[in-house]
């Protein structure tokens, strides 16, 4: 395989993570977290190069069509079933700088709320033309987009009658391993949002709201697909004097 890492991740220490906007490890409303949450305090330190660098992928890692979940698993000439949507947004770091050429991976249930996974036994059928994963790289200005079907809501075993709102899982690489992030994107107006134990592991109402993508009429493609806007912010890095000069700050 080709070398996938083309340049070193950025050096420079990271800004301390604001844990108040992240879910606690132990969130009893989400029962699985009870046995999977460390109980001792994590040990804090200022990032060494192992944490301040990270894998940076070359553009050849992502193939043409990887960002189109409508067709990337479909038979030739076929397309996944469900509402056609585009999800787009910008990847920024905490200082507001775009993160260019970063790898974003997504996965989701199909339009009926069923995952293509051997452990998912939900009643809703699989769609033979929908795999449920996609990936893309951000452009030079940090923009990303992918095309897919709007996922369905589905029930899950937590309390007796818990449902996941429609959501898309998103995995993001920044420039530092300590920026690594997995999150979930929800859809504005979904009536299940206030009832989701997983979304509400996030203790901060504004942080919850930022996980909800907005319908973007202006970017919607007429007679084709509705567009949803979802910006992602990674932790910031403290700039080094060298970087400041490079950017002319």
């Amino acid at each position: 395989m080709r070398t996938m890492i083309k340049r070193p991740g950025a050096q420079g220490a990271l800004v301390q993570r604001d844990l108040s906007i992240h879910p606690p490890a132990h969130a009893p409303g989400y029962k699985t977290s009870v046995l999977r949450s460390p109980r001792l305090a994590p040990i804090s330190f200022d990032a060494s190069p192992t944490e301040a660098t990270g894998p940076i992928f070359g553009p050849d890692v992502v193939g043409p069509g990887d960002d189109d979940l409508l067709t990337n698993y479909a038979a030739p000439g076929e397309s996944a079933i469900g509402p056609r949507i585009v999800v787009m947004g910008r990847l920024l770091d905490g200082s507001g700088r775009p993160v260019p050429r970063a790898l974003i991976e997504v996965w989701q249930a199909n339009a009926g709320g069923r995952y293509r996974h051997k452990r998912d036994g939900y009643l809703a059928p699989l769609d033979p033309n929908f795999g449920g994963c996609g990936r893309c790289m951000t452009d030079d200005d940090g923009w990303y987009s992918f095309r897919t079907v709007q996922p369905g809501a589905y029930p899950w075993p937590n309390r007796a009658n818990d449902w996941r709102p429609a959501h898309i899982h998103i995995s993001v690489f920044g420039e530092a391993f300590a920026q690594r992030l997995i999150t979930q994107m929800y859809f504005e107006g979904d009536p299940l949002i206030p009832h989701c134990p997983i979304l509400h592991t996030v203790p901060d109402a504004a942080a919850v709201d930022r996980l909800v993508a907005r319908f973007d009429k202006s970017a919607t493609i007429p007679m084709d697909a509705c567009t949803w806007r979802f910006d992602i912010v990674l932790r910031g890095r403290r700039q080094t004097p060298f970087e400041n000069r490079m950017e002319g700050l």
């Binding site: 992240h22 905490g94 200082s95 899982h169 995995s171 992030l181 997983i198 901060d204 700039q239």
Partner: peptide, 23 residues
């Protein structure tokens, strides 16, 4: 020192049981 206008980080969510599909 830096004086930067910080944006809050996007909140983390569990990778869930089907993280394998995406990764």
């Amino acid at each position: 020192a830096n004086a930067l206008g910080w944006l809050p980080e996007t909140a983390s969510q569990t990778g869930g049981p089907y993280v394998h599909i995406g990764c």
